[in-house]
């Protein structure tokens, strides 16, 4: 066990992948000498060379489009999109090509491309640097969408994503990059798409992923002082979603609140609410509630704290669900 930040865990994970598979490549803007604006690829170009850790031209469609070509040639590209808001020039390549090629080729070709995207708010940034667009990818068949919440998951899930033969959109909670946690590099990791019970509880399940897991754990702690026992489920994967895992938790607690930074309208929480209502209708004591972003552009930094679901807003939803 070693204690490290999420950023360092991701860096170690990439290093391990580059070492263990010569077909793995890193591509992106400023990933070379600079090591990426968040330093996730720090030192990798120095150690693996410019042929494997590639500073690309400033063109996201080009980055993902050529990654597809490289994958067709037998490589396993891991591309970095600098910030969430800058993935959209590549959205066409991701949605119309990356997601569909395997099916169109009747399964004869595989596209093991990982698209890493630092996402989410809370870092006081200017616009386009704080968004949570995961639903826009989860909605597309052919893509897998995951997000680690802890250094340990960062370390393991990224390697699993790289080993996966499908395209994976890998969302990194940027405001958690500097949070530390224990990483056991000798462990046997859980399957990539399985939800993890981050904290056990009896009265209500809080389901979250990425940056909101930490908030939900704080909520559970606060609620405990009021004598309420909340279970926190770290979903880890938005496509596929581990509905069995959520169902098992909800059958025990009978109440569910889904939390994410992304807008609630047509979001991950909406899908979970619908499916869990179908699966657990007779177990539920309250409607499934959602806490998340509003149907509004991500606001300027000096008001983002009000926009982001924090302790109070999640507790408010917990109260409402428990009062039902």
């Amino acid at each position: 066990m070693t204690s490290m930040t999420l950023a360092k865990a991701l860096n170690e994970s990439l290093r391990h992948s580059l070492e263990s598979d010569p077909k793995v490549l890193m591509m992106g803007e400023d990933v070379g000498k600079l090591g990426g604006v968040f330093r996730i690829t720090d030192g990798l170009q120095k150690d693996f060379g410019e042929e494997r850790v590639i500073d690309t031209p400033l063109a996201e469609s080009g980055i993902v489009g050529t990654a597809i070509g490289l994958a067709l040639r037998g490589y396993r590209p891991v591309v970095e999109i600098q910030f969430d808001g800058f993935v959209f020039p590549a959205y066409d390549q991701i949605v119309t090509q990356l997601a569909k090629m395997h099916a169109r080729a009747l399964g004869k070709i595989k596209l093991p491309v990982v698209v890493r995207i630092p996402y989410g708010g809370g870092i006081g940034a200017v616009e386009h640097h704080s968004e949570s667009p995961e639903t826009l990818f989860a909605h597309v068949a052919g893509l897998k969408v995951v997000s680690p919440a802890t250094p340990s998951d960062g370390y393991w899930m990224l390697q699993q994503a790289i080993e996966c033969d499908d395209p994976v959109i890998f969302f990194e909670p940027k405001r958690r990059y500097w949070d530390k946690g224990e990483v056991d590099t000798a462990a046997v990791p859980a399957p990539l798409h399985r939800a993890n019970v981050a904290r056990e509880g009896r009265d209500l399940t809080l389901a979250a992923y990425g940056p909101m897991v930490k908030v939900c754990l704080e909520v559970a702690k606060a609620a405990e002082e009021d004598g309420r026992s909340l279970e926190v489920l770290d979903l880890r994967s938005m496509s596929p979603i581990d509905f069995d895992g959520i169902q098992a938790s909800v059958e025990k607690t009978r109440r569910l609140v889904v939390v994410h930074e992304a807008p609630v309208f047509l979001g991950t929480g909406a899908e979970i609410a619908a499916r869990i209502t179908e699966r657990c209708f007779y177990h539920l004591e309250a409607p499934v509630l959602r806490v998340g972003g509003f149907h509004a552009p991500y606001p300027p930094a000096r008001v983002e704290e009000e926009y982001l679901p924090g302790l109070d807003r999640v507790l408010d939803a917990v109260d409402r669900a428990l009062a039902f």
């Binding site: 509004a296 606001p299 300027p300 000096r302 008001v303």
Partner: peptide, 11 residues
């Protein structure tokens, strides 16, 4: 600082 309600303005 902006008024929190301004989040919903001019959408």
């Amino acid at each position: 600082d902006p008024d929190p309600m301004s989040i919903f303005e001019n959408v």
